[in-house]
C-alpha cells in the first residue's frame, strides 16, 4: 500500500510555487543532465515547461541563469533517488545489466516519486512495477519481479521490530509468534539463485517453479535468506498471529507432517531466531566483526543533504 502523509488538520493546498518547483524537480532527465555524472548545470535538453517554471519563479544570479539554478536542484533530486534505489537492488542490477537497470529505475521513479520520509522505502512498489514493465520480456518480468521482492524483503527485515526470543520455559506457557523481521515470500521462480550467478543467462537453464523464500535478520542485525519447503512455509504462516503451542499441535488438521519432522522444523526455527514472543521487546545484539555494507550499513538513507 502506498504510504499516505497524515496531516490531520485540514490544510490549504500547496502554494503554486511549490507545486511548480516540485513538478520541475521530477521532470525526466534530458539532454546533458541525462548524460552527466556531475552537477555542472546546462540548460540544454529541458522542456519548455521547465524553462517556463524557472522563468516564472527563480531569480537569475550573477553566474547562473534561472534555469541553471533550477537544474541544480533537478539533478540533485534525480541523482539522489536513482543512487539510493540502485543501492537497494544490487543483485537485480547485476542480472539486468547497467543500461537496462538504470532505465528501469528511472521509469519507475518517474511514475512513482517517494511517498516516505526515508529513501529506504523507495523500492516499495518496484517489484509490482517490474511485473508490468514493457521494457522487459516475459522471462525477465517473472525473474526480475521475484528478485526485486527478495531484495526489498531484505530492506524490510533490516529495520523491523525485534521481539523477545522465547526461552524453553516460554514455549509451554506463552503465546509464540514469528519475528516481524522474518519475511516469507512466495515467488514463481527460484530467484534466490541469482545471488550466486554472475549474469542472467543462467536463468535460461533454470525451471520455473513456485518457491517460498524466508528472509530474516540474525540476532547480530545482518540479514539472510533461504528457500523453505512449501509444507514448512504453510506451517510457519500459521504462527504469524501467535499461537499457544499445546493448542496448536492438538488441533492440527489432517494430514499433517510426522511429529519428528515437525520437531526438526521447530528446532531449526528456534535456532535461527525466527520465533518470538509477540508484544515483548527483544534485545538486538551487535556483531561488530561483521563488515557492514550497502543496505546493511543504512547507506541508502544517509545520502548527504544537510
Amino acid at each position: 500500500m502506498p504510504r499516505k502523509i497524515n496531516r490531520e488538520v485540514t490544510m490549504p493546498p500547496p502554494e503554486p510555487w511549490q507545486q511548480d518547483f516540485f513538478r520541475a524537480l521530477t521532470m525526466p532527465l534530458r539532454g546533458a543532465s541525462r548524460r552527466a555524472t556531475e552537477l555542472n548545470p546546462v540548460a540544454e535538453g529541458h522542456s519548455a515547461e521547465f524553462f517556463a517554471i524557472a522563468g516564472k519563479w527563480i531569480k537569475p544570479g550573477a553566474s547562473l541563469s534561472e534555469a541553471e539554478r533550477l537544474e541544480l536542484y533537478h539533478r540533485q533530486y534525480w541523482y539522489r533517488v536513482l543512487d539510493s534505489l540502485a543501492e537497494d537492488f544490487p543483485v537485480l542490477r547485476r542480472m539486468a545489466g547497467d543500461e537496462l537497470f538504470w532505465e528501469l529505475i528511472e521509469q519507475y521513479l518517474l511514475g512513482r516519486p517517494s511517498r516516505s520520509f526515508t529513501l529506504r522505502h523507495l523500492g516499495e512498489e518496484f517489484a509490482g512495477f517490474l511485473e508490468q514493465s514493457p521494457l522487459l520480456d516475459e522471462r525477465q518480468r517473472t525473474w526480475f519481479r521475484a528478485l526485486a521482492a527478495i531484495e526489498y524483503a531484505q530492506m524490510e527485515s533490516f529495520e523491523a521490530l525485534q521481539c523477545a526470543l522465547p526461552t524453553p520455559g516460554d514455549l509451554e506457557k506463552k503465546m509464540i509468534g514469528l519475528q516481524e523481521h522474518l519475511r516469507l515470500i512466495t515467488i514463481p521462480v527460484p530467484a534466490h539463485l541469482c545471488y550466486e550467478w554472475k549474469n542472467f543467462s543462467m536463468a535460461e537453464h533454470s525451471p520455473a517453479e513456485k518457491v517460498c523464500i524466508a528472509v530474516w535478520r540474525h540476532a547480530s542485525g545482518r540479514s539472510e535468506r533461504m528457500c523453505v519447503e512449501p509444507d514448512e512455509a504453510e506451517f510457519l504462516i500459521g504462527f504469524r498471529n501467535g499461537v499457544f503451542l499445546k493448542e496448536f499441535f492438538e488441533t492440527l488438521p489432517e494430514p499433517h507432517p510426522e511429529p519428528e519432522k515437525l520437531s526438526q522444523w521447530f528446532a531449526a526455527w528456534q535456532s535461527r531466531g525466527w520465533l518470538g514472543l509477540p508484544g515483548e521487546a527483544g534485545q538486538q545484539l551487535l556483531d561488530e566483526a561483521f563488515e557492514w555494507q550497502g543496505k546493511h550499513a543504512m547507506s541508502s538513507q544517509a545520502m548527504p543533504m544537510c
Binding site: K4, F21, F22, L25
Partner: peptide, 20 residues
C-alpha cells in the same frame, strides 16, 4: 531541522529546498 520545504501532496523530494 532545516528551514526549508521538501514535499508536495505527500510526494517527497528528499532534499532541503529553498523558501521564498
Amino acid at each position: 531541522d532545516h528551514l526549508c520545504w521538501g514535499s508536495v501532496d505527500g510526494s517527497v523530494s528528499h532534499d532541503l529546498l529553498p523558501l521564498p
